[in-house]
Design a protein around this nucleic acid. Sequence first.
DNA 1: CAGTGATACGTTACCGGTAACGTTATTGTG
DNA 2: CACAATAACGTTACCGGTAACGTATCACTG
Lengths: 335, 335
Amino acid sequence: MKKPRPTLADVAKVAGVSRMTASRALNEKAGVSDKTREDIQRIASEMGYVANPLAQKLSNGRTHIIGVIAQLPTSFTNEMVMGIGTSVRSAGYEMLVYFLSDTDMQPPSSVVNLLQQFADGIIVLLPYEADYLEKLRQASLPVVTVESLHDEPTFPAIITDGYQGGRQAMEHLIELGHRRIGFITGDLKLISARSRLKAYKDMIEQYGLDADPALICEGDYMQVGGYDAAKSLLAIKERPTAIFASNDISALGALSAIREAGLSVPEDMSLVGFDDISLSEQMHPALTTIHQPLQQMGRSAVNLLMAMIAGLEVPFHQITLPTELVVRQSTAKPK
Amino acid sequence: MKKPRPTLADVAKVAGVSRMTASRALNEKAGVSDKTREDIQRIASEMGYVANPLAQKLSNGRTHIIGVIAQLPTSFTNEMVMGIGTSVRSAGYEMLVYFLSDTDMQPPSSVVNLLQQFADGIIVLLPYEADYLEKLRQASLPVVTVESLHDEPTFPAIITDGYQGGRQAMEHLIELGHRRIGFITGDLKLISARSRLKAYKDMIEQYGLDADPALICEGDYMQVGGYDAAKSLLAIKERPTAIFASNDISALGALSAIREAGLSVPEDMSLVGFDDISLSEQMHPALTTIHQPLQQMGRSAVNLLMAMIAGLEVPFHQITLPTELVVRQSTAKPK
DNA sequence: CAGTGATACGTTACCGGTAACGTTATTGTG
DNA sequence: CACAATAACGTTACCGGTAACGTATCACTG
């Protein structure tokens, strides 16, 4: 039951060599004969020896662990975490996730310190403003952020082009022939929400569409917000023929409101979302939306971080991944 | 930029004492005069000193970190993680989460080893069968599982009574007057799904309702599964007047199917879910469901684990938390 | 005023690894 | 065949903490 894990010293003793030789053998370093190396490796695996990463960190500063700081788990962060997880693993690292609780958006400095001591590098999933970034900057280890907030990023960052995505969504609706398009914003505290809104406005202007301010309703990226916003949009005398929601969850709320009003999608009202979370494919009707390569963003973040850990100069300070329009069943030509 | 973090030795040097005295002062241990203690603490905080948990672990076996092993992030695990997080923090600990990737349901033993060395205790969120539990058992540190799988649990476990919850849901429908009730199962590999199914069958029998086997359709806890199952249920000649879905996500899928069939909830068809995820409150109509105290489960798990870490004898080997019926708008009397 | 006990500290050793350097035996070279 | 270079290993020291034990000072006690 309480079998203390074998240490390097245990392995070395059984193999009849010094700890150092055992260390060399297990780390594939030079200075050990092939026979000895094989013996040691065999003995180590027989004994179930696994190196203690803490001790390694203490000794040489490497743990082969990367830390992830995430906001409250959402479908958005979840997928990213998955992407990060798989590619971290394939790089021979492991990942530990630290979740900020909703109450402390700026976590106690202990967290930063914690991860700083545990991890070889940190990936920050960053939809919200975060004061603790300053502390992170002082940290002496590589940091990559995802979906950076500031126009002038503090760290190397992986972002998607929310602006481009917004334009894609609008282009699709416009091509279908819609001229009055309602817009449900996201939480405008977030940069992603603001860039999507900007894309909407720019496209309205560029194509000379109705610029009725009533067509823009504020949401919050949540379902209820989408529902309420859609209700307002449906109450407009000259009702729009399509609604562009800033994310899929809002679109889901909007769908409820539309149905409650006795309308159907896409016959009476086209609906476009944003994010392409897994739910949107499974909805009925399946939601036309803007795909964000969340998993790929995770992978890119890892690649970038790995390069930084290896001491390489980071080529780009900010990497933008493209979005993609996914046409499903929730959009059609206006009647 | 690259300011190496101050160590205990740095603090001690500035304070003009030995490392040991500094350690004692910072850990509130006896053997230091009040004045010296205050001096040291002041200097430490001025220097921004924070203890290195790795070194602590190496030295005395404590990190004040608890590890969480979770399956792929789902809304289910997410809420639990939140509950764990807050109560872990209030106990002066921190939490790091390890996510199993979908490919490796039994993670490389490295994970277990990893957490074993990092953490003072481990909480395993365990909806699925997991071979690696055996390895965990050999670990020499406290483990608590949540939603244990086996009838005879390997570890102290926090569970909810899925059977009781299933009965509550059925009771509600029966009280409303439903006599033909369809059931959408969960993934029957999971114990939770099986106990809900058993509750359904038992209630059918107990109240002498229609025991038509066609009324039981297999789902998988996913939205599509719920959609398909509901379609089958609606295709039955003598259509049920209510559907009990094994979880909220399935219910969401079922809702789509019901609407597609031109029926409305709850007028033509009552619908009950299970889990009470946040989405179910926001749906339209808001879903009647069985509330599982996910956050409280997390808290209980932490409490139990803390007791084990403190070396206390664990009073109960398995703690069952009650479920609760939450009546919203998706259920009504049959027409 | 020697003996006792507490108080306030310092020293040493160790946790489990690795870097840096030292030591021995073997081989190759002029 | 003396000598240098190399391979294969061992020793020592250190990462940043803490446990265990040692020591100096001081206040009481009888």
